[in-house]
Nucleic acid binder design. Structure first.
Lengths: 222, 222
DNA sequence: TCGCTTTTTATGATATTCTAACATATATAA
DNA sequence: TTATATATGTTAGAATATCATAAAAAGCGA
């Protein structure tokens, strides 16, 4: 079932929305300001975010932008009547819809439904880690925003590493997952592909870490 | 430029919207009730319809339904606050969006922009991508505006690729979708049809991308 | 049957992957 | 620290897989 993140500094509003959302069968999570929302998005996937425009710490617009940079989650803005419309629903901010306060919960619920269904139709599977972006449907890789051509094996290898980010993978595991056959121990094949892959992903080559005596892993260092 | 039909029984409102819409560069047409709107839609194409919910002769909801039966034109409903939300933006009526009266003209203009762009991406019987236009009802293809004759298989193949734009399709998937039977692996059939199709779509041949080791995909590069 | 589309088969061109040899880096123990 | 063993990186050419095209064979409707 779809999961909704509700971001508002007023606990009453959060509770109200939460109750309705749960009644509609959604999972809910709450955040009381933009910063918290952003950090939650890093760790968790939501199907839609309900975000108040005016909040302490980090306002809704800035939070929306930041989240857009991390993941492709649709955002519905809540705002007081009178806000500049362009800003609210503007294309720069990237909000998908907005609802004016005071709102009717039923209206909000209907908007949620629409936004989720719209998004699920158009979203292509994209993975974004660090400066790497992978469109798994189109098999296209962007390094620092620039489209990068990879061969089939390079792509498969990168995807496997990225999907197991932070986990050390032995050559055996890699061969089995990417090549689909058994590993002969004196084989330089994986090493060679790793080198090849590194040479094609520019600066991101450092994200592929050699773990001596074990294998390789994909890692984003902060 | 996009053409908008404004349907409201109050001339003042029509004039107001008209003025703003023209200022934004849209062509406008007016109707004072639902019946008139429906008959206008029979004779003319609009990119979006702004429709008041409450009107004499034929109310906005019914008019919306009728028009949906004739053509696929998106509708933005105007309504007094307090209307049942479900009815307004409900999935039965088929309205694409709604705006509550009294509305800010700027808000309405922004909604128009969004609805038009959304619709142009999803419109049904005519598909337009890059320099290719496919009329799925007449099975006619236009390349750079010029009618192009394709054989049945070529057409089916093109349509399948275009409908899955940006997605890499394996030969297996293509065979199953376009030919409708199981895939024999040593077959160059798909390759051959791709070549054939490419040879008939002129410049657009580049939009059909070979993904070595995987399959083919249709792609518009920017 | 004729003329067309579609499928199959064959072939050459090209891109990718593998192999093996060697170079370099890192760890360990003397 | 230095020598040694071991692991990893690099390179270039061979082997292989994949693709585009052509040509032949088969289907199919008029």
């Amino acid at each position: 079932m779809a999961k909704i993140l509700i971001v508002d500094d007023e606990p009453d509003i959060r509770t109200l929305i939460c109750r309705y959302a749960k009644h509609e069968g959604y999972d809910t999570a709450e955040a009381s300001d933009g910063l918290e929302a952003v950090s939650m998005c890093r760790n968790e996937d939501f199907d839609v975010i309900i975000m108040d425009a005016m909040m302490p710490e980090l306002d809704g617009f800035s939070a929306c932008k930041k989240i857009r940079g991390i993941k492709d989650i649709p955002v519905i803005m809540l705002s007081a009547r009178g806000e500049e419309y362009d800003k609210l629903f503007g294309f720069e901010t990237g909000a998908d819809d907005y609802v004016v306060k005071p709102f009717s919960p039923r209206e909000l619920m209907a908007r949620i439904k629409v936004v989720i269904s719209r998004h699920s139709r158009t979203a292509s599977d994209k993975i974004k880690v660090g400066n790497i972006e992978i469109d798994t449907l189109g098999r296209v890789v962007y390094i620092e925003g620039k489209r990068t051509e990879l061969t089939a094996k390079e792509y498969d290898l990168l995807l496997y590493l990225v999907r197991n980010m932070g986990i050390v993978l032995t050559r055996e595991q890699i061969i089995e997952a990417v090549w689909g056959y058994e590993y002969f121990s004196a084989d330089r094949t994986v090493d060679w592909q790793i080198k090849q892959l590194r040479s094609h992903i520019g600066k991101c080559r450092d994200n592929i870490v050699t773990v001596r005596g074990v294998g390789y892993k994909f890692e984003i260092r902060k």
